[in-house]
Design a protein around this nucleic acid. Structure first.
Lengths: 218, 218
DNA sequence: GCTATCTTACTGACCGGTCAGTCACTAAAC
DNA sequence: GTTTAGTGACTGACCGGTCAGTAAGATAGC
């Protein structure tokens, strides 16, 4: 009678799948609680393994945190670089497209949460700051600057001092997105995502575009 | 012989001064370590009292944190409101002045750190979010909007949709300031504070100012 | 194809350090 | 003498990290 029962072992060996599953679980738990409050028991439970297994794949809680950030954020940067490299239209078109795409990225709860986490944990993990600056901030700046430079070359954009337009775009997008994520629910008159995005594009373009020679309305 | 010695008691009762001293110590420690990692023993030592004394003035670690945020951030908002209320010149002048003043505020390590802390701890302290939105974000927006509205009324500024200019100013300032605080040291080619501030003003004005009727250069 | 053997992925009870919060006590100050 | 600000040793919960043990599943031998 019990011949057919229990063909399923109590657990399975799945060494190839474990690391990603653990990173996903770690993301959820670190985002929820922050590094210090996050419990490895929670990560383990969520990943469907025991705590000991975590230590087979990651050296420590810190190492797990670092790998998690890396795994979640790098693909977003690569995607943006791809877009700039392959886009064909006008510079204005490219910039608007980049901004829209970047908005979708930073507006996602996932990335916004990572940004929040990283900024906070910077003080505790110096090497995390180095990594984040080099691999996320600097690369993002470079891809934005490439889009803007194209517009300067074509005469569509003015040459903003100190390449500040790049930083302005990044600041507006990141900060607005985080605001939408964390404060919109508290706002009695929140803006929609479309309104915010439109606002960012409006401010950026009208600060970046060369003034049309004559456009008086009256 | 020992008649003159030891007139100094081992400790003094100073109930009026303790709360502020404890709040200052709490600020330093919370900023350094974040809420979860901060140790009340450290706060006590820094304030020159014992841990038990903390509990005479504050109900819990959480309460201490909330009161600390309140004590550090509100004066900054009040100062900004004052400025807008009393300023006499043109709207452009007022806006630039507000931006400069606000930059000095958010650029200070103290306020940047509070912002970082608050944003991070939002998830753990719902009522902190409510307080921060109502008493910091909303009030700051209102004072910025007052400055911008003055410019719209006088014809100096265009009417940006959804009052987004207000948000753009705040985002640019806060995010740029935090960037200067936390990442400038990692940047191989950092901008000076003056350059960043100039960049913000440039972007904001050229997105906000009504285009001069004719200013063709050629 | 069936069992014996070996490797190693995985488990989970346990340990030691940490720290928020308590309380019985001390002494400053009126 | 009374009040109460202030002390600091203590406690109990919590959690990162360990490790001896278990069993999955691959491989070898027959």
């Amino acid at each position: 009678m019990s011949r057919t029962a229990a063909p399923r072992p109590r657990w399975q060996r799945r060494p190839a799948a474990r690391p990603d599953e653990i990173l996903d679980a770690a993301f959820a738990v670190f985002v929820e609680d922050g590094f210090a409050r996050a419990k490895l028991d929670d990560v383990a439970r969520r990943a469907g393994v025991s705590k000991g297994t975590l230590y087979r794949y990651f050296d420590s809680k810190e190492a797990l945190f670092r790998e998690m950030v890396r795994a979640k954020i790098i693909p977003c940067v690569v995607q943006g670089e791809e877009l700039v490299r392959t886009h064909g239209g006008s510079a204005r078109d490219l910039l608007v497209t980049v901004i829209r795409r970047m908005w979708d990225t930073v507006r996602s709860a996932e990335v916004a949460q990572i940004g929040r986490l990283v900024q906070f944990e910077l003080g505790s993990f110096p090497e995390l700051g180095r990594f984040y600056f080099d691999e996320v901030i600097a690369r993002t700046r470079r891809l934005l600057q490439a889009a803007i430079d194209r517009g300067i070359a074509s005469g569509e954009f003015r040459r903003v001092p100190h390449h500040f337009a790049t930083r302005a775009v990044a600041s507006l997008l990141v900060h607005s997105a985080q605001h939408q994520c964390f404060f919109a629910s508290l706002d009695p008159a929140p803006l929609t995502d479309e309104q915010v995005l439109g606002g960012v594009i409006d401010i950026v373009l009208n600060g970046v575009m060369v003034r049309p020679p004559s456009r008086s309305k009256a």
